[in-house]
């Protein structure tokens, strides 16, 4: 009874995430179709990777002809920030068993972490795991559903309205900008500026992959130095 109530509570708490995930999942499905990845591959990607920005990155990098291993490593690098989410929740999840932690870890995306971090503390200890499961299930299922809907309708749209194909090439830049804008603040701005310049310089000299890796390492380092000077 406690489990079912907690799960439903988590499911209800996932509604704000659902509102964000459905259109982004849909956009991913459409973008994957635009990049000629295919419906099955798009859903396969969402089912197993389940990390929005990196899925878009993978599709975009492959579309630009980046070798598959480099694309995979860059994509993994993008997810390194997820290292912080488990430790961030640890003070609220001390009573979780090893098995529960291993299960809960799969769904710890940016948005799930943000909602869980803000609400799990007010849940009774015995309900926390099932509440988190409800939250993660709501977010995960709508991500898959959004991808499937976007991929199927994207295929139909592209076959009937061919002028949409160049328009869909803009889905990736739009997604990256929409992810970047909420992250901009006085701490992140110097790192972002350096990263933009580095990526542009490397890209126009024909070394996009090196530019992304350089941005991932040099941008944060400069950001920390600037922060320490402030």
């Amino acid at each position: 009874m406690i489990r079912s109530t907690a799960f439903k509570g988590g499911l209800k708490s996932s509604f704000p995430i659902v509102a964000g995930y459905l259109p982004v999942g849909f956009a991913f499905g459409v973008a994957a179709e635009g990049a000629q990845v295919g419906t099955l591959a798009a859903v396969f990607t969402s089912l197993f990777i389940y990390a929005g920005a990196s899925q878009f990155a993978l599709v975009g990098l492959l579309k630009d002809g980046v070798p598959i291993l480099s694309a995979a490593l860059i994509t993994l690098g993008l997810n390194l920030r997820h290292l912080l989410y488990g430790p961030g929740l640890s003070r609220y999840t001390e009573e979780f068993s090893l098995r529960e932690r291993l299960v809960a870890a799969f769904g710890l995306t940016d948005e799930v972490f943000a909602v869980a971090f803000s609400r799990i503390g007010i849940m009774p200890h015995e309900s926390r795991f099932w509440w988190l499961m409800g939250l993660e299930f709501g977010a995960y299922s709508c991500w898959i559903g959004g991808t499937l809907a976007g991929s199927i309708s994207g295929d139909l749209l592209l076959s009937h309205f061919s002028f949409l194909r160049p328009a869909l090439s803009f889905a990736l830049p739009a997604l990256f900008l929409s992810l970047l804008l909420p992250m901009l603040n006085s701490t992140t701005r110097p790192a972002v500026m350096i990263s933009l310049l580095l990526a542009a310089a490397f890209h126009w000299s024909g070394h996009s992959e090196i530019g992304i890796i350089a941005a991932a390492l040099i941008g944060p380092s400069i950001g920390i130095i600037v922060r320490n000077f402030q």
């Binding site: 920005a53 878009f56 990155a57 975009g60 990098l61 630009d64 860059i74 690098g77 993008l78 390194l80 920030r81 912080l84 830049p173 990256f176 900008l177 992810l179 970047l180 992250m183 901009l184 701490t187 992140t188 790192a191 972002v192 350096i194 990263s195 933009l196 580095l198 990526a199 542009a200 890209h203 996009s208 530019g211 992304i212 941005a215 991932a216 941008g219 944060p220 950001g223 920390i224």
Partner: peptide
């Protein structure tokens, strides 16, 4: 924390 926005910025450029 800074690595996420830095990589997204680089991916935006590409």
């Amino acid at each position: 924390k800074l690595m996420g926005p830095s990589m997204i910025a680089a991916l935006l450029v590409v």
